[in-house]
């Protein structure tokens, strides 16, 4: 490979990684804090994409303007789902897989019945429709924006978890719910907000993916498996691990797809993760594991 190809593959890898990180970040928080396997996470992504489409089509909003609304819409939905369904299942983590899959089916079907099953397209913001040259490689500005956005959201989330009272409460509950509640922490409220925040992040991910890929009711299913593997690979309760494993995965798929094709690359990456989980279920970058 000549240097230009190497750089271009690396940049493609980073771009894939930033999208994966956006999707996985919300999942990492929800799974890390509550132990809930949220199979509806892909549907939150999908709802975010559809919100972007709806706001653009019916309210003529550009993607930038709509981001904050999308976050609020999907976060509210996530909060409502946590209040009505998820909170009854904290003692039965395996059953959360089933219930959230059911919620995913409902969400997909609700969209199919209202917005229709056909593919939808979201316009890219005009300011970012061009591309820039970096080290002699042409890269779409929007992809760079996604990369920066993902990094910013990660920074915000990290700050929220490790530098605010909310984060301290959440981590206290995760470590020991009984002791935390005896210190007056309302775990119900904290879990509800955590779920809402995670869902909101997924919504933003969907909104940012929407100009790059076509929007369909089934789009979420493809992301949820990848996102889960990233979270588990990175190590539960380790935000840094999530970032690193997203980067590893992104680069790995980009490099492997250079040598074979996208499908084989994806299959090989998944297989590699399965083997890693088998030997390090606690993840690559975490020393302790949720009991």
């Amino acid at each position: 490979m000549d240097p230009i190809t190497i750089i271009s593959q690396l940049v493609t890898g980073l771009s894939i990684a930033s999208i994966l990180l956006l999707v996985a970040l919300g999942l990492a928080i929800i799974y890390g804090a509550t132990g809930v396997i949220n199979l509806a996470h892909g549907e939150f992504v999908m709802l975010g994409a559809y919100s972007a489409w709806a706001l653009q089509t019916f309210f003529n909003m550009s993607l930038f303007e709509s981001l904050i609304f999308i976050f609020i819409i999907v976060a509210l939905l996530g909060w409502a789902i946590e209040r009505t369904v998820i909170r009854h299942l904290y003692a039965r983590p395996l059953d959360t897989i089933l219930a959230t899959w059911g919620i995913g089916v409902i969400a997909q079907q609700a969209i199919r019945l209202t917005a229709g099953g056909e593919l939808r397209y979201v316009e890219m913001p005009k300011q970012l429709a061009d591309s820039v040259l970096i080290f002699g490689v042409e890269i779409s500005s929007f992809r760079i924006f996604v990369l920066i956005f993902a990094a910013t959201l990660f920074g915000l989330t990290w700050y929220l978890m490790y530098r605010t009272t909310f984060g301290i409460k959440l981590r206290a509950i995760t470590q020991n719910p009984e002791v935390a509640s005896s210190f007056g922490i309302n775990s119900n409220r904290v879990f509800g907000l955590t779920f809402a925040y995670g869902a909101g992040l997924a919504g933003l991910a969907g909104a940012l993916i929407s100009p790059l890929k076509s929007v369909s009711p089934e789009m979420g299913t493809t992301y949820v498996v990848d996102a889960f593997l990233i979270v588990v690979l990175g190590g539960v309760e380790s935000l840094m691990g999530t970032v690193l494993s997203a980067i590893i995965l992104g680069e790995l798929s980009s490099i492997l797809s250079f040598y074979s094709n996208d499908t084989i690359a994806k299959a090989l990456v998944l297989l590699a993760i399965v083997i890693l989980i088998r030997f390090r279920p606690q993840g690559l970058f975490s020393s302790k594991v949720r009991s």
Binding site: I37, P93, L94, V225, F228, L229, A267, L270, V274, I277
Partner: peptide, 14 residues
């Protein structure tokens, strides 16, 4: 538990 579910799901996709 959960890891069996994740591994079997990933193998299905592969």
């Amino acid at each position: 538990g959960v890891y069996v579910a994740i591994i079997t799901l990933a193998i299905l996709v592969v």
